[in-house]
Amino acid sequence: MSEKPYTPPDHGTSPSSTGQLMLVATPVGNLADISQRALDALRAADAILCEDTRVTTKLLRHYGISNQLIPLHDHNEQDRTPSLIDRLHQGQRLALVSDAGTPIVSDPGYRLVRAAQDEHIAITSLPGANAAVTALTLSGLPPIPFMFLGFPPRGEARRQHFAALRAVEQAGLAATLIWYESPHRLLETLKTQEQVFGADRPAAVGRELTKNFEEMVRGTVAELIAHFEETPPRGEITLLLSPPAEEDTGAQELDQVLQDALKNHSVKDAAALVAGIVNLPKRTVYNRALELARQNRTD
């Protein structure tokens, strides 16, 4: 039976070329988690842009697909983008995949997509697997709103990263937070979260999602630390942290201190004073002070 070629959708636009960039989601583990539309696109593309040719080759071989593979990763994307844009202007269709999941999300390709947009080249996304969303649905934590933050920084920057998020929570943010993490850094990351967010904060760790040894460990941050100290983590890791508890008074306390300061100080001076008291970033406190001052004027 002959295969039908992939037909690009008509979005009613008039791109400057007949080429198209296709963002194709691939499985995060289980090779069966790929759509027929994605397979058709990989077959029909003039070339496939991928992070690691060895990883993508396994997927293509599994489905009997033979196509040109072009490595596109963090170290060569900037240099390779101009030649890829040229190919798109020549009318070629290029498929962009990551090693696993949805392209661009914590993966290379952003520079190429922006360049293609600037050149008015047609771009389409073929949706599919995503580890962050898969973990969220299994975590038992509030699904909306959530914030995906990629990989946390290493070393001291990691603590600063978490401290900034905690500051924003104290200013009113209430969302499930999601990160990817490597197994050998997971325990250190959890211990830093314990220091910043507290030992009793509900959390979850998804491991090897969609694979044979899939695991979702749920509990407080302290319980997760105890679990992974006893059972060292392996495989691909997704880490989730619950929103602050409803009885978390951080935001209310910040507002009360700011309101008191605003009675006798300008917004700028009140924010500088309070930032030193509550140990929060000055910009975060200033933005909240400005909002409160506006509310006070309208009351």
Rank of each mutant, 00 (worst) to 15 (best):
K4Q: 14
P8N: 05
D10Y: 08
T13M: 13
T13F: 13
S14Q: 09
T18Y: 13
G19S: 01
Q20E: 12
P27W: 00
I34E: 01
S35I: 11
Q36M: 09
Q36N: 09
D40G: 07
D40S: 13
D46Y: 08
R54E: 03
R54C: 05
V55K: 09
V55Q: 04
V55F: 13
K58W: 06
G64P: 13
I65G: 02
I65H: 00
Q68H: 09
Q68P: 02
L69D: 03
H73K: 01
N76R: 00
T81L: 09
P82G: 07
L84K: 14
R87F: 05
G91Y: 07
L94Q: 08
A95P: 04
L96K: 04
L96V: 04
S98W: 00
S98H: 02
S98T: 03
A100K: 05
A100T: 06
T102K: 06
P103R: 06
P103T: 04
V105C: 00
V105A: 05
S106W: 01
D107S: 03
P108N: 12
R111I: 15
R111A: 13
V113C: 11
A116V: 12
D118G: 15
E119K: 08
E119W: 02
H120S: 09
I121F: 07
I121C: 06
A122I: 07
I123Y: 02
I123F: 05
A129E: 10
A132Q: 11
V133K: 02
A135D: 03
L138T: 15
S139G: 02
P142W: 05
P142E: 03
M147T: 08
G150R: 00
G150V: 06
P152G: 01
P153S: 00
R154M: 15
G155M: 14
E156V: 15
R158C: 01
A167L: 08
L173M: 11
L173A: 04
A175L: 09
W179A: 02
E181N: 02
R185M: 14
L187E: 13
L187T: 10
E188G: 15
T189D: 04
K191V: 13
T192D: 01
Q193P: 03
E194M: 15
A199H: 00
P202W: 12
A203Y: 01
E208Y: 02
K211I: 09
T220N: 01
E223H: 01
E223L: 00
E230W: 04
T231M: 14
P232K: 15
P232H: 08
P233S: 14
R234G: 04
I237W: 02
L241M: 08
T249D: 12
G250C: 02
A251T: 11
L254S: 05
L254W: 03
D255Y: 01
L258M: 02
Q259W: 00
D260W: 08
L262G: 10
K263W: 14
H265V: 11
S266G: 10
S266Q: 03
A272G: 06
A272F: 03
A275S: 15
A275H: 08
V278T: 05
L280D: 03
P281G: 04
K282Q: 13
K282G: 12
T284S: 05
V285H: 04
Y286E: 07
Y286T: 10
N287A: 06
E291L: 01
L292A: 03
A293T: 00
A293W: 07
Q295D: 10
R297V: 09
